[in-house]
């Protein structure tokens, strides 16, 4: 079972000095937070804001590479989470064959946003992630951290 997700936003996590990509399903009933590094967050942020950088960023190069060779991204799927390591797959159509390429979720999402490809998450990863890490993270959050989120 997979659920289609949308990128709702990027939040700074002052605890881990990292960013959280927040994915939600259509009904806003499931939420999937994914922790990513600063440069990964900026690759996603630029796409979210529709900012075109003066020079092609890494995922722009990826996109133009795939376009040049007529490979189309059908979808990306966040497949698993295992001890803070996230797994995703990118599904490509090339010359009438489908290819599945292993990737980090941050690359998969940055690319999906640039190619308007749908993002899915497996049921397994939604259950694991929302129950485990987010609650823990929220519990550890002190009131003063909320101020930092705005900046």
């Amino acid at each position: 079972m997979i659920t289609q997700m949308r990128v709702k936003g990027l939040i700074f996590d002052p605890y881990n000095n990292a960013y959280i990509v927040v994915l939600r399903d259509e009904e806003n009933s499931d939420m999937l937070p994914i922790w990513v590094g600063k440069s990964e967050a900026s690759a996603i942020g630029l796409a979210l804001e529709n900012v075109t950088a003066p020079r092609p960023m890494t995922h722009d190069l990826m996109k133009s590479f795939l376009e040049t060779f007529d490979a189309k991204i059908i979808s990306v799927v966040i497949t698993d989470l295992n001890e803070n390591t996230y797994f995703a797959t990118i599904h490509l159509m090339y010359e009438d064959s489908e290819y599945t390429v292993d990737s980090r979720p941050s690359d998969a999402i940055a690319l999906a946003l640039r190619t308007s490809a749908p993002i899915f998450a497996s049921e397994k990863v939604i259950k694991k992630q929302s129950s485990e890490e987010l609650e823990q993270w929220l519990e550890n959050l002190k009131p003063e951290d909320f101020g930092k989120l705005d900046t």
Partner: peptide
């Protein structure tokens, strides 16, 4: 442990 962005480009190239 996980493919970095340029590993992914390399992987795309290999697949295609």
């Amino acid at each position: 442990p996980r493919p970095m962005s340029h590993d992914l480009i390399r992987s795309f190239a290999d697949h295609l």
